[in-house]
Every structure is written in structure tokens, then in C-alpha cells.
């Protein structure tokens, strides 16, 4: 098996404020795959990205990207990777085309040489190529940043929260673009706080407070959910949640949109149904459901 990212016992502590940002992180990303780092703000995702993109030194451990050590081989590595940071980091007073030109030149290449890789993305913003980057909408900025990160045809692409604050429709579009980039042979590490995006990755790591909770393909993580999961729905969802949480055998209960997801310590789900009817929810419907990644994440957090 070939790996394009190999992370070996990486730890990083910050002094002020005193936080253990990363603690013994281990994972490998297969060459040509799309790997997702799923976790909330403050989980350590950005710190890990900065270490893997040679911008920050780890306290302990080592990491290789495309077979090169992130510390010793940092110079070579920088030409082999593309990095799109979470914050928009292009030159706002340069035009769209000038930004792209700039990044191509930095990597001693031309727009033409890498055009095939960014074609589908860049074509959407090309009509505005003379506009200053600072004047672009959020969606267009994102496309330009992605184009600039890809123009030198990197082997490995790092995307730090590319869809945070992006609406549901644009998020879908963005993930389609990622799939196309992956199909052209680029290995991708992407981070996101949106649990629903996890299923679009080949493999994911769930990360919380600097520690990895679980690493596996999303379908495996879902299959490993140890309890039977029920969805409970009724007409007064607020009161229903309150009454469900009072049931003696409840192990967990969390609202998911217009339903409540429930697991039990023991006992029969019929007992819950009976009690809810007694407590004034005659219309209550309980089904057995397949967990989502968010269910798995919540369980692992506890």
C-alpha cells in the first residue's frame, strides 16, 4: 500500500495560552484518496495542517508527505503540495488573473502548464479575471484560492475548512470539484466541521481536543456504532425531548432536526413508547434507524 501522508505520533503544545493542541496523532492517507479530518473549531485541525505543510514544527513525532520528511525536506516538499488555508490568503489588490499568474510564477511554472487541472474550476471565474480578488463573492474567492493552490500541479492538496460558512448548495458544488481533482490523481486531505460531508470522503478521522477518536472509512465508523439507534418523532418536539430524557433506560438522547435520536441502556423500546403516550404524546412514532456520522461523533465525544 502506498501512502501520500504518513503521520507518526505527532504532538504539539502551545505555551500561551497553555493548550495541548495535538496529542500522539497517527494516521496514513492512501495515495490518490480523499481523506477527511472531521472536528469542531479548536480540535487541532489547523495545527495539524500547518505541521504537514511545513509551516510549523511539531514537539514530538514525525510526518512524511509524498515520501518526504516535513522537517528535513521542507523546501522540496513545498513544491509538491498545494495548501488552501482556512482564511482567504490571496492578494486582494491583485486581479483574479494576476493572483493565478503570481502563484504559477512562484512555483516556476505557467498557467498554461497547469491549466488542465484547474480548468473546470477556473472557467467559472474566468469571465471576471480582471476583477480584484478583494471584490469577489465568497464562492468566487474560494474557487480562485483552489485554482491558485493547484496551478503548480501538486501531488498532495491540503484544504483547511474550505466550506465553513458556505451555504448548502455551494458546499455540494465544492465537493463535486474535489471529486474531480481526486480523479486526476491528486491526494487530498480536507478538514471540515460539517459532519454530513464526512460520508463524501474515502476515509475520515474524527478529531476532538487534539486527539483522534476514530479513523476508518465512514461506512465502517457507522457500522461500528454499538447500540441500536431509534428515532422518536412527535408533534411537540421540545416537550418530547424533555420527556424522553426522563425515561429510566435512556443512554443518550439528542435532537436531530425534527426527530430525537435515542439509545437505551437496556429494556425494550416499547416501554419508552408506552411512557411517552402516557405523558401526553399519543402521536409519537419510533423507528429503528441507521446512525449518521454525527451520531457516531457525539457518542465518541462522551
Amino acid at each position: 500500500m502506498n501512502y501520500d501522508i504518513e503521520v507518526d505520533n505527532i504532538s504539539k503544545q502551545f505555551v500561551k495560552p497553555d493548550v495541548q493542541a495535538l496529542e500522539d496523532i497517527n494516521f496514513n492517507v492512501k495515495t490518490g484518496s480523499l481523506f477527511g479530518l472531521i472536528g469542531a473549531d479548536g480540535a487541532g485541525k489547523t495545527t495539524l495542517f500547518r505541521i504537514l505543510t511545513t509551516l510549523l514544527l511539531a514537539d514530538n513525532g514525525s510526518a512524511k508527505v509524498h515520501g518526504r520528511d516535513v522537517v528535513k525536506d521542507f523546501k522540496i516538499l513545498r513544491s509538491l503540495i498545494g495548501y488552501m488555508p482556512g482564511r482567504f490568503s490571496l492578494y486582494t489588490d491583485l486581479s483574479v488573473e494576476e493572483n493565478l499568474q503570481f502563484f504559477a510564477t512562484l512555483h516556476k511554472t505557467t498557467i498554461e502548464a497547469g491549466y488542465h487541472l484547474i480548468k473546470d474550476i477556473y472557467r467559472q471565474i474566468e469571465p471576471f479575471k480582471n476583477r480584484r480578488a478583494g471584490q469577489l463573492s465568497g464562492g468566487m474567492k474560494q474557487k480562485l484560492a483552489l485554482s491558485c493552490a493547484l496551478i503548480h500541479q501538486p501531488k498532495v492538496l491540503f484544504l483547511d475548512e474550505p466550506t465553513t460558512g458556505v451555504d448548502a448548495v455551494s458546499r455540494k458544488e465544492f465537493w463535486n470539484m474535489l471529486k474531480n481533482i481526486k480523479n486526476q490523481g491528486v491526494t487530498i486531505l480536507v478538514s471540515t466541521p460539517y459532519m454530513d460531508e464526512a460520508v463524501l470522503c474515502d476515509e475520515i478521522a474524527l478529531i476532538q481536543n487534539g486527539k483522534i477518536l476514530s479513523i476508518a472509512p465512514p461506512s465502517t465508523i457507522i457500522a461500528q456504532f454499538p447500540d441500536v439507534l431509534y428515532s422518536v418523532s412527535g408533534s411537540q418536539i421540545g416537550k418530547l425531548l424533555e420527556d424522553v430524557s426522563k425515561f429510566q433506560d435512556i443512554k443518550s438522547c439528542f435532537s436531530f432536526g425534527d426527530t430525537i435520536h435515542v439509545t437505551l441502556n437496556q429494556g425494550d423500546i416499547k416501554g419508552l413508547q408506552k411512557e411517552l403516550i402516557q405523558r401526553g404524546h399519543p402521536e409519537v412514532v419510533i423507528d429503528t434507524i441507521v446512525p449518521t456520522i454525527e451520531d457516531c461523533f457525539i457518542r465518541l465525544m462522551q
Binding site: 472536528g39 469542531a40 473549531d41 480540535a43 475548512e161 465553513t164 460558512g165 466541521p193 459532519m195 476532538q208 439528542f254 435532537s255 454525527e294 461523533f297 457525539i298 465525544m301 462522551q302
Partner: peptide, 13 residues
Amino acid sequence: DEPTGGVDPIVRR
């Protein structure tokens, strides 16, 4: 305005 952007699933709830 987007009060829960980026927070973990438990805190969101």
C-alpha cells in the same frame, strides 16, 4: 448571525 458555525455537535445542541 450563524451562532453555531464550527462548534461541536453537542455544544450546538
